[in-house]
Amino acid sequence: MVGIVVWQQGHRAGERIEHPEDPLAARYAGAASPDAESSSAAQVSGEHEADSAELFSVLIRKPDGPPRVKLAGRDPQGRSPEAACSTCHSIRDPNFGNTTPATLDEFHQGLSVAHGNLACYACHNPQDADTLRLADGTAVAYQDVMTMCSQCHSQQAESFAHGAHGGMTGHWDLRRGPQMKINCIDCHDPHSPVYPKMVVGFKPKDRFNVPADDHHDHEGADSHGEH
């Protein structure tokens, strides 16, 4: 759970905790509502896809910033305290021997990681815990996490750039309005990026299967056969 909490969007935190088993529910609820979308638009930065000044932007939502880690216990006012990564990591030396949470003797234990054979410091920056790092050692802000994902997932990044990967809302016609896109980690938990399973909720019924009459479907219609 630590992983999920770390990577959540600030304004979605409450919903995410309400549905810990279905991290998509929160995202979907937000995306379906135009109001939620416009409020999140304040937190996104514009990225112009076309040269024409008359066109609206394609807005890609970005993470708020470096994650904050929930601490165990409560403070005297009953709040759950949070701490920045650097609060601890700035005073501790990185141990490159720990490549998975399994070998940790304190903190982040039990974090489920299933992202290839990547070690923690493949992505987290040992020099500055509040940033990420690219393969060449360049530091990348948490807000620009997509730059890091794209190092390996260039095919997905290319598809994303052309609207063929990742969800969106708003306008197809940028002459008439902006388009809002979500980013990689909205769907893919970076520690365990496999898209989660979902439960089918809504099914069209045939007109005979009205709720009050659930069992009178086509098998039921057979009883009319004697007519």
Partner: peptide, 15 residues
């Protein structure tokens, strides 16, 4: 026809 995306597309959580 007003430039917006269809409802089914906006609702798709998988993109």
């Amino acid at each position: 026809r007003r430039g917006r995306l269809p409802a089914c597309l906006e609702a798709c959580p998988t993109g």
